[in-house]
């Protein structure tokens, strides 16, 4: 580094410069990330007149809001579990299934694309496929005489939203889990085998315990990912499906709850739920990385 002959004053000046270097970032983060969020968080504990209250939080426990949270959680849990399960088998297939290499690189590239293919266009894609006149619906009707919508299936429902969300959940799982599966050393399997373990014993006693922090952590990430998503659901169902982000959207547009501070509480609830699952995810990832050494 540079010389430090004129000791004391130079050091303090240098420290000032050091901290000035990240000032732009600090200002940006405060203005566009932290203060707006804190504003909502504090607003959740205030009455419209500015007095401290827990009433907003208590009001979250009204049936209409609770049902919104409940359906959001159900969709997020279902799509993250489904995404995790299918994603795990896909990652397993390309890492340990002995398939040709081009399948692996093809699937990984595709996963990179599909995990970012969310929002409004994704809703269109599923409407064109599983909507009332979608490709699969029509195909089943014309070729098998099977009326998909006669079974009570509806794309604009809990189940429809879940399988739509899985379109970006599965690839995300594949992307995060493939490195974790690559990290399973061949020698662990061989060591277990030569010690007499069957394939099933190896998976139960060695591989799954090693993988579970990654598996569970990624599932939590998928959960948070689905919980905060709005564009797909909004384009798919309009405002007919009462999930939290859509309720919040309507509240922002038109104060449908007739209480701005209740809107803040709604937002706080979302932050708490996604925050908890992300913190658990980070914690589990640190656990997983400890073993990867």
């Amino acid at each position: 580094m540079t010389t430090t002959t004129a000791a004391a004053p130079l050091i303090s000046k240098r420290a000032v410069i050091d901290w000035l270097g990240i000032a732009p970032f600090a200002i940006f983060a405060l203005m566009f990330l932290i203060v707006p969020t804190l504003y909502l968080v504090t607003g959740a504990f205030l009455t419209p007149e500015g007095a401290f209250t827990f009433k907003n939080l208590a009001d979250l426990f009204t049936p209409s809001i609770m049902s919104a949270y409940w359906i959001s959680i159900r969709v997020s849990v279902a799509s993250s579990l489904g995404g995790a399960l299918i994603g795990f088998f896909l990652a397993w297939a390309i890492v340990l299934g002995g398939v040709p290499n081009w399948i692996r690189s093809g699937l990984l590239t595709f996963s990179g694309v599909a995990s970012n293919f969310a929002g409004v266009p994704l809703a269109f894609a599923f409407l064109s496929t599983l909507g009332r006149t979608g490709l699969v619906t029509v195909f089943l009707r014309d070729w098998f005489g099977f009326n998909l919508y006669g079974t009570g299936f509806n794309l604009l429902s809990f189940f429809g939203l879940t399988i739509t969300y899985m379109y970006f959940q599965i690839p995300l799982m594949v992307l995060i889990l493939t490195p974790a599966l690559d990290g399973l050393k061949k020698e662990w399997r061989e060591a277990a085998e030569i010690l007499g373990a069957s394939t099933w014993q190896y998976w139960r006693m060695v591989a799954l315990p090693i993988l579970w922090p990654s598996l569970l952590g990624t599932t939590l990430l998928l959960f948070a990912n689905a919980f905060g998503a709005i564009a797909t659901a909004y384009a798919l169902t309009g405002s007919s499906l009462n999930i939290v982000p859509i309720l919040l959207y309507a509240q922002i547009r038109g104060d449908v709850l007739h209480n701005p501070n209740l809107g803040y509480a709604l937002a706080l609830g979302m932050i708490v739920i996604t925050g908890i699952s992300n913190i658990l995810y980070i914690w589990l990832r640190m656990r997983a990385e400890r073993w990867q050494k």
């Binding site: 050393k185 020698e187 662990w188 061989e190 060591a191 277990a192 085998e193 030569i194 010690l195 007499g196 373990a197 069957s198 006693m205 060695v206 315990p209 090693i210 073993w291 990867q292 050494k293």
Partner: peptide, 29 residues
């Protein structure tokens, strides 16, 4: 198969099971 041969093997890269402590590693077989 390897798991039917009753052979002991030590690998170059140790290959200890990272999720088990020393006792459980030795106890595995």
């Amino acid at each position: 198969k390897p798991n039917q041969r009753n052979i002991g093997m030590v690998f170059q890269a140790y290959a200890l099971f990272p999720n088990m402590n020393v006792h459980d590693n030795v106890a595995f077989g």
